[in-house]
Design a protein around this nucleic acid. Structure first.
Length: 670
DNA sequence: GTTTCGGTTCTTTTT
DNA sequence: GAACCGAAAC
């Protein structure tokens, strides 16, 4: 983050008065932007499309646009709505805009699509038949619920698709606003699966969500769109509220998001979308970059701006990038233009296997580090998390510091979810998932028992009421009763001692009377987990209500990544970065290593089978364009399997496509 | 009838 | 490492 940021409280905090920023600086836009950027930043009202290639100052352009609207157009910061895909992107841009114009941007509705939807639904969910205290189901919850729905169906499980499969299918269809029945039929055309049963599972899943007053990620978008479409007054209010709408990474929007934006700007048309079709890497979750390509058709009179001057990478790296992407035809034609001096030729590193690849990376990183490049300026990228397994082992052995942008999200770890479950049930008594998660921590209570009890209590478990506890204890198996007696005071205190605004205290008490001991018995790394929970309790300080805390953590995927206060403060440490390509989007490092550039790995076999290789090629393009100075493309020749067997690997097609003379072959490690 | 436990299998990408 | 399955234990 910008080192010169003013001491602004994070976006999770309460309001900081505008008077904090007394003197608004006069800005010279022409001086601080190049011609391309200046044109986009100062675009007149109406729809505008900014095609921003990698490393061309896309973020800068958006930030200056925010500043421009406020200083030159006399718009208030809260009248500008910025929509992004990650919390991190939103926070970075808003905070940097605050620095520029000394006005508060972080307190409005701007943020991710999902947090925006959440915010509107917290005010108006009752208009579409939900309670405002609805629960947000994360990926893990959704999966559990889907599992339960399938189990209820009484089909033969062996031949029935897994929850993951159904959820991703339903998710994509809903994102596209497509026809479910047709999609299901097509998807299972060549299998034994009966589409009718799949549709039944879907119906169950929808019904269960409604009963539990819960929404999954897709629902947030669907329901907020529904709200705007159906309710004229609310629509008019927000159309008037947001005088300008800016959308980042527009190539990654799906049909719902495009529609949502469309409704928001329908009256005034002041919409600027920014993106790069070459970097569209989320079609597997319903993104459709035709939203981006066809923008000029959808918004008559749209102005188009292109940013092509790349400040990030050396010409040699850009040559590789341009070469890679030229394999994909149907896109906006654009080429990255280098302004930097010549540098090193990117390396093609052939190694024997994953361990040798790991040792190459470590040795090279050491060498670069000796030459004065901090480890934090070096990043290792890969297609899938497990591709980095050997590297992680070797790094530990070599005692080199490293940070993984983890696949396991902080808030989805079992122990974090366990303690948050208490809060969830207190807030939303209909939340069966929370109820069963909580009660199944007690001995002799499993799935069946918890389900039975939940229905015995009428599908609502209001823990703040004394009589609920009486009924509950009567229904529990004897072995579990004692455990519940211990917990009871924690729940009753929520109401009696007014802990609604102090979720941390509830978590603390839950830990004290029950969960700390539970962890000792159930996890061998309970000490680390206990630390996480202490960190979580500290984190709750930022919130003034339990509801706000819960929806925030459901939408905040990764504490370490998203700039919240991380429980572990290794952030400033000089460490090598390990990340998937997806998670590295929008970021840059001096040195990039790409691992396992082999057929079936990068490109991923599954992805190609499902959708062809063009998205994988774009993904590779994203990887390459993260590098500022040096690029190492690694391709092992064999992969060792767990059972000791070996698989021979072919080099990735993406490597073969690159002309030999723009790469330097490294006789690597054997 | 349910829960628990132990063994086996396989890792795409994420708000 | 966690998710799934089948068998033992309550």
């Amino acid at each position: 983050m910008d080192a010169h940021s003013p001491p602004v409280a994070s976006c999770f905090c309460g309001f900081v008065g505008d008077e904090f920023f007394a003197n608004v600086p006069r800005m010279n836009f022409k001086e601080e932007l190049n011609e391309e950027q200046y044109a986009a930043v100062t675009a007149s009202d109406g729809p505008a499309l900014v095609v921003a290639a990698a490393g061309t100052g896309k973020t800068r352009t958006l930030i200056y646009r925010l500043a421009y609207l406020v200083t030159e157009k006399e718009v208030q910061p809260w009248e500008v709505l910025l929509l992004t895909f990650t919390n991190k992107a939103a926070k970075e841009m808003l905070t940097r805009a605050e620095t520029l114009v000394q006005r508060r941007f972080n307190s409005g509705y701007s943020g991710t699509f999902h947090s925006f939807a959440n915010r509107l639904l917290r005010s108006h969910a009752d208009c579409i038949g939900f309670g405002r205290d609805f629960t947000i189901l994360d990926a893990d919850d959704a999966k559990k619920l889907m599992r339960a729905c399938i189990d209820e169906l009484d089909v033969e499980k062996k031949h029935f698709p897994k929850p993951d499969v159904l959820l991703s299918l339903f998710g994509v269809v809903s994102g596209r606003m497509g026809d479910l029945s047709a999609a299901v039929t097509e998807r299972f055309e060549h299998s034994e699966v009966d589409p009718d049963w799949v549709l039944k599972a879907h119906a169950r899943y929808q019904a269960r969500k409604k009963e539990s007053n819960a929404m999954d990620f897709d629902d947030l978008l669907i329901h907020v769109l529904k709200l705007l479409v159906e309710n004229e007054k609310i629509r008019a209010f927000y159309q008037d509220e947001f005088k300008y709408v800016l959308v980042d990474e527009y190539q990654d929007t799906n049909a719902i998001q495009a529609q949502l934006v469309h409704y928001l700007v329908k009256t005034h048309g002041n919409l600027m979308v920014v993106g790069d079709d070459f970097q569209s890497i989320y079609s597997w979750r319903g993104a459709d970059f035709r939203n981006f390509l066809d923008f000029e058709k959808a918004y008559a009179g749209a102005k188009t701006f292109k940013l092509q001057i790349n400040y990030r990478s050396t010409p040699e790296i850009l040559d590789v990038a341009n070469e890679v992407i030229s394999g994909n035809p149907e896109q906006f034609q654009k080429e990255l233009q280098a302004v930097r001096e010549n540098g090193d030729v990117p390396h093609l590193v052939k190694v024997r296997d994953g361990s040798m690849q790991a040792r190459f990376v470590i040795e090279k990183a050491r060498e670069l580090n000796r030459k004065g490049i901090p480890l934090s300026e070096i990043c290792v990228l890969y297609r899938s998390h497990f591709h980095a397994m050997e590297l992680q082992m070797e790094l530990a052995r070599a005692q080199m510091h490293y940070v993984v942008t983890s696949g396991v999200r902080f808030f989805e770890q079992a122990h974090i979810k366990d303690v948050c479950t208490v809060l969830r049930l207190l807030v939303n008594p209909s939340d069966e998932l929370a109820f069963s998660r909580l009660i199944e921590m007690l001995p002799k209570v499993g799935k069946k028992t918890s389900h039975k009890i939940f229905h015995k209590l009428g599908g609502r478990v209001n823990l703040q009421r004394e009589e609920t506890h009486e009924q509950l204890i009567a229904a529990l198996p004897a072995a579990a009763r004692e455990g519940w007696e211990v917990l009871k005071p924690v729940f009753l205190a929520y109401h009696e001692e007014n802990l609604q605004n102090d979720p941390g205290e509830v978590v603390f008490r839950f830990g004290k009377v029950f969960y700390t001991e539970y962890m000792v018995e159930n996890f061998d790394n309970h000490k680390f987990r206990a630390e996480d929970i202490d960190g979580l309790i500290d984190f709750t300080v930022k919130f003034d209500s339990t509801e706000a805390f819960l929806s925030e953590i459901a939408l905040l995927s990764n504490l370490d990544n998203e700039g919240g206060k991380a429980p572990s403060d290794e952030e400033n440490e000089d460490a090598l970065r390990l990340s998937t390509v997806h998670q590295a989007k929008g970021l840059e490092w001096k040195v990039i290593f790409v691992l396992f550039l082999n057929e079936d790995m990068f490109p991923s076999k599954k992805a190609i089978e499902e959708a062809g290789d063009s998205e994988e090629r774009r993904l590779f393009y994203v990887a390459v364009t993260r590098a500022k100075d040096e690029l190492f493309l690694c391709t092992p020749m064999v992969r060792r399997q767990r059972d000791g067997g070996m698989i021979f690997l072919d080099p990735s097609r993406f490597i073969s496509e690159i002309p030999e003379d723009i790469l330097r072959q490294n006789g690597g490690f054997f």
